[in-house]
């Protein structure tokens, strides 16, 4: 099982502007000159925020197995690149099955669909799975006049909406999938994917307070022993408990605590705050790793990564 992150930013896509990019290039060039020697090696040795970027596409994560069908979590703006990659790989004349699992239908999680080219191509099968009654309505509505020039009915692929029930287990695309209800305005759902002894959990847009033991146990049960959990770490704990309380998102600290309770192996920080620069996300990552050390106790180490657009994790 391999996880491929196509969109990792929360709430709204973002990109660097000319000044941000110039600052980044300037700092990298100066550091490489100062290091001397092989410039490529010097570049590779720089911290991630100096040599790369977390990217700014909104939520879209692919789970690859050796099976032929696509498994995709959320249709945020990152879905556009996923689609281009898929078409590049198979060509437009080779129909595919795309299984999509929607955490919910907030705009940042569906906005990539009108640009998801496989949906335009007859022969492709697109199954959009979710637990919300409004699933189909939300996808159709965003392409309605006057919001988009191409109505949903115009799409050439066979598109099916599949209503799932939380806590029920399904077999889709060679994977065992279990949705579970999360804490977000209008509800959101996490998904636990299992295959061949490997477990990946997609859990975004959920505000965990960890005050209610029963509620905490419920999430620990769905995260239990996962190889990787993609988790909404949008805010600092201070913001998540004050200014942005009840906005439906969690913090890096709560992510670490929940994953430790569930003996998760890798935490993938996800749904990054759009105002954060690459340097800020790098700093949050370093702090999260430190918090993991502090809070670990007698438990096993939890590996912490900050997901970025383009990251691939082999489980």
């Amino acid at each position: 099982m391999r996880i491929r992150f196509w969109g990792t930013r929360g709430s709204i896509p973002t990109s660097m502007n000319a000044d941000h990019l110039r600052d980044k290039i300037g700092a990298a060039v100066r550091a490489v000159i100062e290091a001397g020697g092989d410039p490529d090696a010097a570049l590779d040795a720089l911290p991630f925020h100096m040599r790369g970027t977390y990217g700014g596409e909104s939520s879209c994560v692919q789970i690859e197995t050796d099976g032929p069908e696509y498994i995709i979590c959320d249709m945020g703006s990152g879905a556009r690149r996923l689609a281009l990659n898929a078409l590049g790989k198979h060509g437009p004349g080779a129909p595919q099955v795309y299984n999509i699992f929607q955490s919910h239908v907030h705009w940042d999680h569906i906005m990539g669909f009108p640009f998801f080219i496989p949906a335009f191509i007859p022969g492709n099968v697109i199954r959009i799975h979710g637990c919300h009654d409004e699933l189909e309505m939300a996808f159709r509505r965003q392409q309605d006049n006057p919001s988009f020039p191409v109505p949903f009915e115009f799409l050439g692929a066979t598109i099916e909406f599949v209503k799932l029930e939380p806590e029920q287990t399904y077999q889709v695309g060679g994977l065992t999938v279990t949705p579970f209800r999360q804490l977000h305005a209008g509800d959101s759902y996490g998904y636990r994917f299992e295959k061949g002894g490997k477990v990946a959990v997609y859990s975004t847009d959920s505000e965990h307070k960890l005050e209610d033991q029963e509620e905490t146990d419920y999430f620990v049960r769905h995260f239990r022993d996962a190889d990787a959990v993609g988790f909404d770490t949008m805010y600092s704990l201070a913001d998540a408990t004050s200014l942005k309380e009840d906005w439906g998102h969690s913090s890096n600290m709560v992510a670490v605590e929940l994953c430790q309770m569930a003996a998760v192996k890798t935490l993938c920080m996800f749904h990054h705050e759009p105002v954060y620069s690459d340097a800020q996300i790098d700093q949050v990552l370093a702090e999260t790793r430190r918090f993991e050390e502090i809070s670990r106790g007698d438990g096993l180490p939890l590996h912490v990564v900050a997901s970025y657009d383009g990251l691939e994790i082999e489980l």
């Binding site: 600092s236 704990l237 201070a238 913001d239 004050s242 913090s251 890096n252 600290m253 702090e287 999260t288 430190r290 918090f291 502090i294």
Partner: peptide
């Protein structure tokens, strides 16, 4: 003190 800093509670 570190936990205060990581959580940004030192800003509040």
């Amino acid at each position: 003190r570190e936990v205060f800093s990581i959580s940004h509670f030192d800003k509040v």
